[in-house]
Nucleic acid binder design. Structure first.
Lengths: 134, 134
DNA sequence: AGGTAATTAGAGTAAAATTGTCTTAAATTT
DNA sequence: AAATTTAAGACAATTTTACTCTAATTACCT
């Protein structure tokens, strides 16, 4: 699975948030979208850290979009929420048990790199505006 | 991660097997590529079940390609090894906890479907021949 | 025909990633 | 000051991935 449930929640949240004039709290979002509150809070925090959302503390606080939806890419959303970009296959984390001792003499490395580039390009080319209807 | 270690092993194995005139046993492959033998055996079994490899039992047995490398697609390899095609995100397995109660009124479903189609097309368009050098 | 080299099948285990919870602290508004 | 809301971090549950083991079966080879 290229993306996780956290990213699904993020996208649904962003769609909800963008339709509101006022900040939306984590609890309100959790109720509206039926997403576990604490889990969702973590996701929103990550989006705020990566400058996709603005978070406002205190009463009447909540989350607001920091940019226009045409200026937020899927790539950035996934990277923010999952802590790293969407990966086809990350062999670098298996360096110790790699049959080829690294990508130098790996038969499939060129394919993997190429595939990854296509995914990256696609995610970079798509904005929130592109994927959200209306 | 779109694909798993099993698919990495499968691709490396297929590259090794295609270079041999004779059947390659699971143990020999395991030694040559430094892949856990029992795990590899399962992977080879799956490739055999899906008619990508021919398996020959008994002494001097092992695995041989069933088709020419130009006729084996990445799509089929991944599906065979992982038991299902490579998925961007499979929300169908979360039907009970879906915020939208299914894809009908899901905001991001069109994007997901579209993205998935691109992945499928890419994997269908690539053969073993395309990704293996020489 | 018998021995052996191999795959097949299936249950089971271990480790890692994902998903989710809880509690406490910090900030903001009223 | 009180109420509300995010922030942070540790922790627990669940699921997936990665891998193992044992026993059975099949087929080659002498």
């Amino acid at each position: 699975m290229l993306i996780t449930r956290a990213t699904e929640y993020a996208l649904l949240s962003l769609d909800y948030i963008r339709k509101s004039e006022y900040p939306i709290g984590a609890e309100q979002l959790s109720d509206a979208l039926n997403i576990p509150k604490s889990f969702l809070a973590k996701i929103l925090q990550n989006l705020a850290k990566k400058e996709i959302l603005i978070s406002k503390k205190g009463a009447k606080g909540g989350f607001v979009l920091q940019k226009e939806i045409k200026d937020v890419t899927l790539f950035d959303i996934v990277a923010a929420v999952e802590g790293r970009p969407a990966m086809v296959f990350d062999c670098t984390q298996y360096t110790d048990t790699c049959p080829n001792n690294g990508p130098k003499n790996c038969t499939i490395s060129p394919f993997l790199v190429n595939f990854q580039k296509k995914i990256d390009a696609l995610l970079h080319s798509l904005s929130l505006e592109d994927i959200l209807s209306e």
